[in-house]
Design a protein around this nucleic acid. Structure first.
Ligand code: ZN
Ligand code: ZN
Ligand code: ZN
Ligand code: ZN
Lengths: 139, 139
DNA sequence: CTTGACCCTGTAGTTACCTACAAGGTGTAG
DNA sequence: CTACACCTTGTAGGTAACTACAGGGTCAAG
């Protein structure tokens, strides 16, 4: 548990100092001890918590969902089933996003294939005409 | 070209009146004629333009990209190749998003499979331990 | 003792896209 | 005439997660 100021913690974790203070202000990171000067002093627990946040963000969790995960880890009654439920919900959410993007991709791709990317005047462009709602190219 | 006030246009297109005024303020929709009372009067061109915006949004274009598309349709020198370049860039962007989400999905899914969703104490949960950076479950 | 890196608070800006009033004027049906 | 729906402007809020100062105080090296 070596003590460090906010700059050290920032370098140790790759999270900017402004972001660390932001997390504290918004309750994502507990308020640390202070030196007489007012400087924040962190233990390595803070680094672990920041690592947790970064990992969870990389998995698609929002900060408020991450707060709930922290609350869960502090709840003596919580168990694997609780955590798994959050993970399953997030998985579904990610799947929905992927599906939406895939549909989007397919529509755009179909339109692109109708547009030969040549030098036809733009008034004849199938992409533009589709956007204007003109019939003939349903994507 | 039947004339209509903002409320009619809103109902005809499904775009809220506040949103229509927002589009005008921000240059996504041209300023319409006004009645002596100050009421905005739209022709069906406005409805087409709103339809264009909605369709393009559904394909993943942002409002400022949509503005560029409009600028293109007004440019006598523009052709299909210009439009196709935007479409191709957007397609790449969508593909990147899908890839990122897919990687996220795989990581989370792998973690979930390690977590049997039973009543183990949370300190033994592989998901939580992964987030805390503890070894043993690399996702 | 000075310099420069570091830290503090508080406030406000960013991106993208709306959404919600407040306070007032207009149009029309009964 | 009187409701009542509709329209106007301007300003401000809301989401998510930061990011950027300004204006000051602190600490350590040389
Ligand atoms: Zn063409
Ligand atoms: Zn084309
Ligand atoms: Zn378990
Ligand atoms: Zn578990």
């Amino acid at each position: 548990m070596k003590a460090m100021t906010i700059g050290k913690l920032s370098k140790a974790t790759g999270v900017g100092t402004e972001t660390i203070r932001y997390y504290e202000r918004n309750g994502f990171l507990p308020a640390p001890e202070r030196l007489p000067s007012g400087y924040r002093v962190y233990s390595s627990d803070a680094a672990k918590r920041l690592k947790f946040i970064k990992e969870a963000q990389a998995l698609g969790f929002t900060l408020s969902e991450i707060s709930e995960l922290f609350a869960l880890t502090d709840d003596p009654g919580a168990d694997c089933a609780d955590v798994n439920a959050r993970a399953a919900a997030k998985l579904t959410e990610i799947d929905e996003k992927i599906e939406r993007l895939t549909r989007m991709r397919e529509s755009l791709d179909r339109l692109s294939r109708y547009c030969p990317a040549d030098e036809h005047p733009i008034t004849e462009c199938s992409i533009i005409n589709h956007l204007y709602g003109k019939a003939g190219f349903d994507a």
